Amino acid sequence: MPGETSAARRRFLRGSAGAMLAAGFGSTLLSACGGSLEAEQPATPRLVSVSNFRDVGGAGAGYLTVDGKQMRRGVFFRANALTLSGTDAATLDKLGIVSVYDLRTPAEIARIADVQPSGATSAALNVLGTNDFVTPPVDSPVDAVAFMQEQARAYVTGGPQRAAYGELLGALANGTGAQLFHSSAGKDRAGWVAALLLSIANVPLDVIMQDYLLSNVYLAPSIAAQTTTLRAQEGAAIAAARAPLFDVDENYLQAGFDQVQASYGTMASYLTQGLGLSTATVDALRNRLVH
């Protein structure tokens, strides 16, 4: 939605032109967590072995929405692959997670198996619909950015992607207890899910974007390590060309949102027509997300 006003972009996310009373709600990530409607909950633990683990609801008392509600914390969590150390596994067990949804391909799962939270059920939902995640050769950062944007658009248009995301959101809506979803790095496939959940909750678009970009903060040591390794193995030019694959950028998420608008007009239509969710399911999911 290049060139549109922020109000128009938020209207698109909500699928309703009459619900834009967003003034004063969260122009920054910090303000979105301030002015609490409920008392703050304990901070979500940082996991050294699963660095991109976080609460979808935000920090503090939770993200505020444009209609004066607030995200519930402790309901949905997102992460990268669950390569849990013993200490982190014990920490995660205290959160009472009952269901884990793995969005990776079979080959990714075979290479790095999850360490499951104690007592949690697990389900694999192969978002890409392929046996493995394959990155095509890229000759420049421009090529890498184009690939990431293409992936984001495919989350909206691809058959396997829509099926997996629809199944996941349905399960999250109908589940009980805390639930966790993750991909390999927790930034792209899982990042799209988190953006959808925040959109359903009516969190302002600028806050959704800032939450998406937090993966760059949480994954900074991993990104640096991957870059160093690639530079040593393939040289500085290749490392520079592939750098955009390792992080997230506003243009990636925006490509997905733009595709939703191009294909379905509104986020509400994408959820119902594209992902096959009933209005009742979307409402149930919103009720789980906010209070």
Rank of each mutant, 00 (worst) to 15 (best):
P204A: 12
Q116H: 09
S263P: 00
T229V: 14
P160S: 09
S140Q: 11
G62T: 06
I208Q: 14
V56G: 03
L289A: 07
F77P: 00
L271I: 07
L64P: 04
G177H: 00
G191M: 05
F147K: 03
G119T: 00
T91N: 00
G74F: 11
A220L: 10
D188P: 04
S122H: 15
H291K: 13
L230K: 15
F133E: 01
A152N: 07
F53R: 00
V260T: 02
Q273R: 08
D93Y: 09
V203P: 03
R78S: 01
S118W: 10
T105I: 03
A173H: 04
A190T: 05
Q259R: 09
R231Q: 14
L103W: 04
R189K: 05
N216L: 02
T87Y: 14
P221K: 01
L125V: 02
G96P: 08
Q273T: 08
P221M: 02
A61Y: 14
V75T: 06
S118K: 09
V207P: 08
P137K: 12
S31T: 13
T5P: 03
Y155S: 05
A59N: 11
E250D: 05
S36P: 13
W192P: 09
V66M: 10
K94C: 10
V134D: 05
A32N: 12
Q210F: 06
I208H: 07
I112S: 15
A17Q: 12
R189Y: 07
A262D: 03
A79G: 09
D93L: 02
G265L: 01
L197F: 08
K69Q: 13
N251M: 15
N52Q: 00
G159H: 03
S222N: 14
S51T: 03
G256V: 02
R73M: 12
V100S: 03
V260H: 10
V127T: 04
S16P: 01
A152V: 06
T5N: 04
Q70W: 14
G256H: 05
T105K: 05
Y165S: 00
A89R: 13
M209D: 01
R162H: 00
P106Y: 06
T83N: 08
F12V: 15
V138D: 04
A61Q: 01
N80P: 01
H291E: 09
V260K: 00
L219F: 12
V50L: 10
L92N: 04
A120G: 03
L21M: 13
L30Q: 10
W192I: 03
R73W: 12
T130G: 01
D188A: 09
S6V: 05
R11Q: 14
A239F: 05
F25S: 13
A32L: 15
G186I: 05
P204V: 02
V50D: 01
L245F: 13
Y155F: 15
G235K: 10
S184I: 13
V66W: 11
